[in-house]
């Protein structure tokens, strides 16, 4: 187990593995998103309360899930990097941050679009949207810290500490915002996300969620490969690949 892990942790092996996996995953991603969108937008029944506008959940909800999921990946990688000095983990954390921020932004934008027909305003201080907004700030802070430290290894470790501080705070922020929201929110306003959802609506949602995850993997692996090449531009195996013109 450990040897397998150790082998994967080598950037060279990871590069090769990612090279093989990326096209396969890209195909899987395209199929999942196509089927998910088709079933979500055309096959799933119309909601009797919200009409057609509810269909935005097929983007909004998976994006919101991804925003948290990617932060967890970043925090886990930061821990791997700080404790076991695994450089690959740092690269994954580095390339994941802008992706996570993008998904967070997507969740915010679609949430706001959904808010217009539902609440009549573009922005409602709903607990989930507010948490999502704060999460976006945390992502931005992480990227800002990383980019403002010149020394790469210092930047990596400072960012890793910040990611871990963030992961301790995210649940606290989440619950405090929820608490704040129930305190101020009149009960009449409906909340995003219904607890009971019909199976014909749920299946496309799960397909989309899986599609988003695979999409993240594809982009993350591709970007990780780029960063590996950049960081190891002077190593023998990269030079050899450049000579043979296969990157």
């Amino acid at each position: 187990m450990f040897r397998w892990f150790h082998k994967l942790a080598s950037t060279k092996n990871f590069y090769r593995l990612a090279e093989i996996l990326t096209p396969l995953l890209a195909v899987a991603c395209a199929i999942l998103l196509a089927v998910g969108l088709y079933r979500g937008l055309f096959v799933a029944p119309t909601d009797y309360e919200q009409g057609e506008s509810y269909r935005i959940i097929y983007v909004h909800v998976p994006a919101a899930w991804m925003s948290l999921f990617i932060y967890m990946v970043m925090a886990f990688c930061s821990l791997l990097f700080l404790v076991w000095k695994m450089k690959l983990a740092d690269i994954v954390a580095q390339v994941s941050a802008p992706l996570g921020a993008s998904f967070t932004f997507l969740a915010l934008a679609t949430g706001s679009l959904w808010g217009k027909p539902m609440w009549g305003t573009w922005w409602e201080w709903d607990a989930r949207l507010t948490s999502e907004l704060i999460l976006l700030f945390i992502y931005i802070g992480y990227m800002a810290l990383r980019s403002s430290i010149d020394n790469k290894s210092t930047a990596a470790r400072a960012a890793a500490i910040l990611a871990l501080v963030g992961v301790v705070n995210i649940p606290i922020i989440h619950y405090s915002v929820e608490w704040w929201n129930t305190l101020h929110q009149p009960a009449s306003i409906a909340k995003i996300g219904t607890p009971s959802i019909h199976i014909s609506m749920l299946i496309p949602l799960l397909l989309m969620a899986l599609g988003f995850k695979v999409y993240y993997l594809v982009v993350m692996l591709t970007k990780t490969r780029n960063v590996i090449l950049e960081r190891e531009a002077n190593s023998a195996w990269v030079r050899e690949r450049v000579k043979e013109n296969r990157l």
Partner: peptide, 21 residues
């Protein structure tokens, strides 16, 4: 960092939110 003073609020203000609430 030379311009750390600008970055600092960005990093810590989101973490201050539970206390504010």
């Amino acid at each position: 960092l030379r311009r750390g003073g600008v970055l600092l609020p960005l990093l810590v203000l989101p973490l201050f939110i539970p206390v504010l609430i």
